[in-house]
Structures are given as structure tokens and as C-alpha cells.
Nucleic acid binder design. Sequence first.
DNA 1: GATAGAGTGATTGGATCCAGAATCGGAGCC
DNA 2: GGCTCCGATTCTGGATCCAATCACTCTATC
Lengths: 253, 253
Amino acid sequence: MTARIPLTLLSDEATMDPALTTASSALVDETAAAIRARIMSGEIPIGAQLRQAELAKTLGVSRTPVREALRQLQTGGLIAVVPNRGAVVRVPAPWEVREAYEVRAELEGLACARAVRRITRDGLAELRQVNELLRPGDTPPDTASHAANDRFHIMIHQIAGNERLARVIREINEAFPRNVSALVLHEHPRHRDDNFAEHERILAALEAEDVETARREMQAHVIEAGEQLAQWYERRSGTVFHGHGQPFQVNFG
Amino acid sequence: MTARIPLTLLSDEATMDPALTTASSALVDETAAAIRARIMSGEIPIGAQLRQAELAKTLGVSRTPVREALRQLQTGGLIAVVPNRGAVVRVPAPWEVREAYEVRAELEGLACARAVRRITRDGLAELRQVNELLRPGDTPPDTASHAANDRFHIMIHQIAGNERLARVIREINEAFPRNVSALVLHEHPRHRDDNFAEHERILAALEAEDVETARREMQAHVIEAGEQLAQWYERRSGTVFHGHGQPFQVNFG
DNA sequence: GATAGAGTGATTGGATCCAGAATCGGAGCC
DNA sequence: GGCTCCGATTCTGGATCCAATCACTCTATC
């Protein structure tokens, strides 16, 4: 193995890339993003098979980039690839959700603790503003409010100022279809109320510059969300999928 | 997009796969593992270009699995793929190391805290035994002691009993070539002493069933290791890749 | 002598081809 | 009537082919 060193030296782009985004060949990443979006939005339901030829046709590319995109999604854990049988959208077991959310809670807690020391007056105002979009009562939950909920968390990650931290949290989130999370949050009004109130408490702690309270409130908030999500999967695990738009009986175990 | 539901329903294998390992087509994963191993061991140095044809020849496969393997490594962050210019082993910036290790510290702290409540008498004994292999003085640092160091941490992750947690920590570790970490730890005797002493303190906290101390000691231990690693990259970064096509000693070790 | 430009070689990325595996359907047998 | 075995179809995964891009070099001009 020679492992040649390039003569034109390591471009900063390659060595220092801050976002770790490694801007790679457009097509594969685009393809991966497109497939991920379809899964996250629920257009492709959990448990569904992903046929390479079909995806390729739909996205207007050949099978090659689709295959590589599926590999990426596989390492992310969103889909499962079984040797000669293709890929399926993973159906997370409830305990998997609880495990993941315990980790996420710890990390979001860290992000929130870091944010206390770094947040500006403007940042706090903006955060409040975003959370106002989530205030219960005025509007029925829609995609806008889902986006606002995401934005609340993502803003805190940005304020925390640790790229790796933000990335790890994002990766955990991307392991579970987002539409399910959103659905859980809003299928019962009480959850919306709780969600909003928890955000308020986090905001209060941020304003009071109380590191430990901020951390604790955020942790509790995430654990709570994870519990709701886990229970959703528990309720559903024995019942239905929506493939072809109609309910589909599935029995695990 | 049809997103067909398979008639033979979701095998448990696919839906419940506990390890999240998604046993996929052997060849790509094997290839990825082989390439990763060569990078981790330092056989392929940081900053080196990875030529698909060359890797394919070396590993005795065609370029196809190599390409997909490189995608996997890319999403892991170990390598960077630039559009039409191929892949290079990423050279982490010191601040990236510090960010990553702050996250890792938090997670290892969590693992350690969980371990306190779950560890058995036998587990504790085994852990002590592993750490004895790291006791300074008797042997010069070799691959065996590096393995023991890894094993110490991995055992704690296993005892913690959260698959996702273990996986996230592993992913962070795999973002930095291991040989560098090992090298840092043992290039100066003081680091070995500190490392051993820190492990001992963690063991003591585990034995005393003191959750918060265990967490704190582990966090401090990981942060310390990260700082050493970051400083190593700082020292090298000035000498290694600053000239534009300049002398270039990349043989470490 | 230095610099800009064109040409050539090397390498990546997308498309296609082919073999192997798995599933599904049907026929035969119990 | 149900179960099992066998064949056909479909799909994945590996190999190969081809175009496009990039880097490097050689040359010509200023």
C-alpha cells in the first residue's frame, strides 16, 4: 500500500472543512437527501421496501447514485439493508427510541448549558419569538409549527457553538422519521401544552443564566418527548402501516 | 412514489435488529472495515489521498465496493471526498478534536454514571484486571496496552447497557485515527501515569457507587485525553501542512 | 526568464451489463 | 385439501464501460 501523498497539498477545504460537510459529488448527496426527505416526511412509510430501480426512476438518475445514497442512509441508521434482499425503512423498537433519546437528552442538555454562557440578548429574543409560534390555542398544528419546534432546538445548538455536538444530535434525530415525532407531539393537545411550557421553562433558565437548571429542564424536555415517541411506537407496533394509503396489518414478534 | 409494502412482512431481523448493525452485503462492509483499519493503524497516514483503483487492487475487489465503502467512511467523517478530486484522510483541526472530545466526555460520563448502577462485582474485578495491564513501569507501551486502554472504555460502555450510547461514542472515536491517540498517550511517560491514575479514580468511584464522582472523573479523564490529542495536532499542524507543496514528513511513528 | 494557454494523461463519477440470490407462483404428491 | 418441491421472474450486488473533470506538463509568447 503506497498511500501516496498529493503534491498539490491538502487544500484547506479538505483539511479544515468546518462543518464536516465534505461537499461531495452533488448527485449522491442530493439523492440521499431526497430519499431521506421522503422518509422523514412520511411519504415513504416506516417498514416500506426501497427498490433501487424504482427510486432511480423516480429521481431521474441511474441506480448507481441510488445505491451509494442507500449506503449513506444505512450508516445513519434510518434504513436497514439486508444482504440480498434490499433496503427497508427501519421500524424502531420502543427501547431503541428510549435509548436514543436518553443520549439525545444528555447532549441537548449540554448544548443548553453551553448556550447559557453564550447567548446574547438578541438571541434570547429570537428564541422567544420562535417559541411564540408554538403557543397553544391560536392555530392548529401544521407544518409551520413543526418547523418552529425544530428551529427552537436547532437555534440552541447553533448558540452552543459546537459543530460536532450539533451534528451528533442531528444524526440521532435523523434516525427516526420526523413526521412521526411531529405527529406524536400534536395528536393530543396536552402534549402541545406541555411542550410549550417546557420550552418556556428552558427560556427562563437561559434568561436567568442558570446553567444547571437550563441543562436539567432541557434534559427533562427531551426525555419527555422521547417517552411520547416510544409510546407511540409501542401503540402502533402491533397495528397498522399506511402503505398504498390504506391500513396494513403487521404483526411483530 | 409508490413505496410498496412487501407482502412477506418486515422480518424481525430488519425491524428489530438490536445492534443497529444492519448486516449488509459483506463485501462493501468488509472493504470499508479494511480501509478504516489501514487508516486507524496509521498505515495510511492522515492527509493521504485514497485512490479508488489502488485500493481496489490492493483489496482484490473492483472499484464499485470501494466507492461505496468510501461513502460510508465519508459519512463517518474519517475521510473527506471532494467532488472530482477524490478522497483524502481528513486532518482534524485542533478545535475539531476539542469539540469532539467535549461531546465524548459528556457521553462517557453518562455511560460511567449508568455503569455505577449496573456493574457487578465480577465486572468491577474484570475492569480492574484490564487496567492492571496499563500500570506504568512494567512494560513499554505496545499494541497490547493500547488494546487494553480501548477495552477499559468499551467494557464500561457495555456495562452501561445502552447500545445507542456505545455506538455514538464509537463513531466519535472512529473520526480520528487511533494510532495518533495511542501515540499521544504514550509518547511521554507522564501521560501514561496520569492515564492510569485517572482510571484508578474511576474504578474507585464505581466501587463506591458514587454516581456523580464517577461521571465527573470520567469526564475529566476524557477531556484530558482530548486535550493531549488536540495539542498533538497543534504541534504537527504547523510543521506538516503549511508549505505549498513543501517537505512533508508524514511518517509518524 | 517568467507566465499564460493548450494539450494530454490520470482519475473520478454515472450508466450499463451480468451473475447470483430470493421470492413468488404453480404443479405434483401426500 | 394442504404441503412440498421446482421453475420462472425480479431484484440486488459486483464488474465493466464511457464521459467529464481535473491536474500536470510542454510550449509559445511577452
